[in-house]
Computed example of a mutant assay.
Amino acid sequence: MNVLLVYAHPEPRSLNGALKDFAAARLEASGHAVQVSDLYAMNWKASLDASDSVVPPIGKRFDPSLDSKHAFENGLQSEDIAREQQKLLWADAVILQFPLWWFSMPAILKGWVERVYAYGFAYGVGEHSDARWGDRYGEGTLAGKRAMLIVTTGGWESHYGPRGINGPIDDILFPIHHGILYYPGFDVLPPFVIYQTGKMDQARYTATCETLGQRLDTLWTVPPIPFHPQNGGAYEIPALTLRDDIAPGKAGFAAHLG
């Protein structure tokens, strides 16, 4: 299988750097082909702007969506964007690895998403009608591929528990899992989260690698997070709200789990 590892940490000698190297080596040892997009090493441009197309804006002003669509459809995207899109199409599985900074991914990784997920590539695809609202949330360009997060955080696991002060980790990661990954079609796997990274000694690092290795070995067999597909009948279209008989009494992120 083909695996794309998109990695976002500025220090190669960090815990994240070591885990990235371990993950790539483990996957390759298992016979998989691996590509790594090391965003800091690539000096990835994080900001989406008019320079993402090789031609000027098509209108009187830059329109992020419409200019993205025009560039994608006409082969006018900047080379770095097109290259990352080809990696996504090549991959059978994608791993996003990053430290949890201010309750989300680092800005450079968010910028990778904003620029690579062009209109017509990751969104704005499919039929919009009374029966469907585009190919998204379980369908789309990246359907049939798997995705997983490897996340490190300095907080304790209890800080991210159901009553923890930081909020449940599943809620914090929901916008990434459901929005960034499930939206364009990925089957989203449960995340691999490493807590208390400041307390990582050699024994704990060895145990962490062993557990991570086991997760990587099951990348194609572990059941994905059971989100409701948008066009599978659970949502009223065009309101895109869950039917009353789906997850009755529930609201918020948890209601969208099957």
Rank of each mutant, 00 (worst) to 15 (best):
G111S: 13
H70L: 08
F72A: 09
W156S: 12
T141H: 03
F103T: 09
Y123P: 01
S68Y: 07
L66H: 07
A107P: 01
G155H: 02
I81E: 02
I108Q: 12
K87T: 05
L96E: 00
I172N: 03
W44N: 12
G75A: 14
K145N: 06
G120W: 04
V125H: 00
A41V: 03
P64L: 04
R136C: 13
D52Q: 09
R83N: 10
T153E: 06
E114H: 12
G126R: 02
S68T: 06
K145E: 07
T141P: 02
F174W: 14
S51D: 15
S37C: 09
Q85S: 10
W112Q: 07
S51G: 14
S158F: 13
S104L: 01
I108G: 08
I108M: 10
I95L: 13
A143W: 06
R115Q: 15
Y40W: 13
M148C: 06
A71C: 10
Y137W: 15
M105L: 15
Y160V: 04
E127A: 15
L76Y: 07
S158A: 14
Y119L: 07
L149E: 01
V116S: 03
I108L: 12
Q97Y: 08
A82P: 09
L66S: 03
I169D: 02
P162V: 12
E84I: 04
I95F: 06
P57C: 09
I172D: 01
V94G: 03
S78P: 00
A143M: 11
